[in-house]
Write a protein that binds this DNA or RNA. Structure first.
Lengths: 238, 238
DNA sequence: CGGCCGGGAGTCATCTGATGACTTTCGCTG
DNA sequence: CAGCGAAAGTCATCAGATGACTCCCGGCCG
C-alpha cells in the first residue's frame, strides 16, 4: 500500500470511527504525518483527495477541518466533474433527472406551504419578465430548486441541483429558437406551479416529467447526434 | 488563485476542451508543471484530486492517464465517501433509491430478454439455497444489479450500485431476526422477477418500491433513532 | 472600562533538490 | 527470431526551508 493510500484510508478511518467528527479540526500536518507514518508530501495529497470529495476543507493559516458531512457536501463534489462527461452520458442523466423531478414535484405538491406557492409564482413572473437568457436560466434553476426544497429531502435536492447545473451549460435559450422555447418553458412552469398549488401530486409529477422531457428533446434536436466511436461492440479496454 | 487551483482547473480545462481525451497520457510532471506555472508539489495534489474524482488514473512508473470518462467512473467516486454520512442522511438516500429502483424495475420489465429472466431466477435460487448472510447479501446485490442492467442506463445502474453498497454496510441479515427477513426478502425477489418475466412494468415498479421500503423499515426499526445533536435550529456555522 | 491595534505563534502553501521504485522500450545475445 | 538485460522515462517519497495567512492575546489609547 502506497504512502498516499495509507494516509487517505487512515484519515478516512479516523472520520468513519468518529475520532474526528463534523466540524473538527484535524491535527497539524507534521503531527498527523508522524502518526500515520508518512511524510508531509503524501499526506497533503491524501488531504486534497478528501477535500475534492467534500469530506474535509483546508483553510490556509487556520487548519484543516472535517466538513459537516451533509449529503449535499458529498454530492456537490460531482458538479466539478459531471460536465466532463460526453453527451451520450448526459442523456442517461436526463432520464434520471426526469424520474426524480417528477417525484419531487409530487412530494412538493403534497407538502407545499403557502409560502412555497408564493415564491414559485414570484419566480415565474420574474422569468416571464426578463429578456436576458442568462438571468432566465438562473431563475429557472431557482424555480426548480424551490420545488425540490419543498419536497423536504436535501440529498435529493442537491443531487438534482448538480444534474441541472450540467444541463444549463448548454444554454439552449441563446439559440435563435430560444424565445419560442422560453415561452413553452414558462407555460410548463405555470402548469407545474398550479398543480402544486392545488395539492395535486399526480398532475405535478406529470407536469415535471413533461417539462424535463421537453428539455431533453431540445437537446437531442440541437446537439449533434451521438457518434459511434467506430468499433461498436468493444468494451472498456481498461 | 492558489497554485493547486491553477493546476486543477488548468488540467480540467485541458480535458474539457478535448486537448486531452479519454485514455490519453498526460504530460510528465515536470513538463506539465512548467506549462501551468506551478511546481511539482501542487501539481501532484491537483492530479490526486482528479484521481479521487475518477477523472485521471496515475500509474506508477508509466504515467498518468485520463480515464474513460464514463458516467460510472465519475459516480463511483461517491462510494468512497457515502459511507461517512450519518444515518439521517441515509434515510434520504433510501427515498431516492426507492424511486429509482421502481423506475429501473419498470423499464427492465419493458425491455427484458429471456437471458435476463433466466439470470434473475438463477440468482434467486442461489439466494434461497445459501445460509451465509454475506453470500446472500452479495447475491442480493447481483440480483438488483442485473435488473438495473436490463434497464439499459449504465449511469443509473452505477448510481444505484453506490446506494446499495452504502446500505449493505449495515448487514441487517446478521441480526437475530435475519432469517425471517431473508424469507421476506426472497419472496419480494420472486414477485419482482415474475413481474419482469411477465413484462408488467407497473407490477415490477410496485414490487421494487415495496422491497426497498421494506428494507428501509427494517433499518428504521433496528437502528438507533436519529438523535438531535442538541441545538436544533442552528445551521452550519460554516 | 472597552475597543482598537500590533505582534507573535500556529498552520497551511509552495518551492527546491535528491533519491527510490516501477514500467517500458530497445538493443544485444544466443 | 526469441529471450533477456540494461537504460531511459516516469511517478513516489522524503527532507528542509521559506512564504502567506489566520487567530489570539496583550498592550495601548480613548
Amino acid at each position: 500500500m502506497s504512502a498516499v493510500d495509507k494516509a487517505f484510508h487512515g484519515l478516512r478511518h479516523m472520520i468513519a470511527t468518529g475520532r474526528l467528527g463534523p466540524g473538527d479540526r484535524i491535527p497539524p500536518e507534521a503531527e498527523l504525518g508522524e502518526e500515520l507514518g508518512v511524510s508531509r508530501g503524501p499526506l497533503r495529497e491524501a488531504v486534497r483527495m478528501l477535500a475534492a470529495l467534500g469530506v474535509v476543507e483546508p483553510r490556509h493559516g487556520s487548519g484543516t477541518y472535517v466538513s459537516q458531512l451533509r449529503p449535499e457536501d458529498v454530492i456537490g463534489s460531482l458538479s466539478l466533474t459531471l460536465e466532463l462527461l460526453p453527451l451520450s452520458g448526459l442523456l442517461e442523466v436526463y432520464e434520471i433527472r426526469r424520474v426524480l423531478e417528477a417525484h419531487v414535484a409530487a412530494k412538493a405538491a403534497a407538502r407545499r406551504t403557502p409560502e412555497t406557492v408564493k415564491t414559485l409564482y414570484s419566480l415565474i413572473e420574474s422569468m416571464e419578465a426578463t429578456e436576458d437568457p442568462t438571468e432566465a436560466s438562473e431563475l429557472d434553476h431557482r424555480f426548480h430548486a424551490e420545488v425540490a426544497r419543498a419536497a423536504e429531502n436535501p440529498t435529493l435536492a442537491s443531487l438534482l441541483a448538480v444534474f441541472r447545473a450540467r444541463s444549463r451549460k448548454y444554454q439552449v435559450f441563446t439559440l435563435p429558437e430560444g424565445p419560442e422555447m422560453r415561452r413553452k418553458s414558462d407555460a410548463d412552469h405555470r402548469v407545474l406551479a398550479t398543480a402544486i398549488a392545488d395539492r395535486d401530486p399526480g398532475a405535478a409529477a406529470g407536469a415535471a416529467e413533461a417539462h424535463v422531457a421537453q428539455t431533453e428533446r431540445w437537446l437531442r434536436a440541437f446537439m449533434p447526434p451521438v457518434e459511434e466511436t467506430d468499433g461498436g461492440p468493444e468494451d472498456a479496454p481498461s
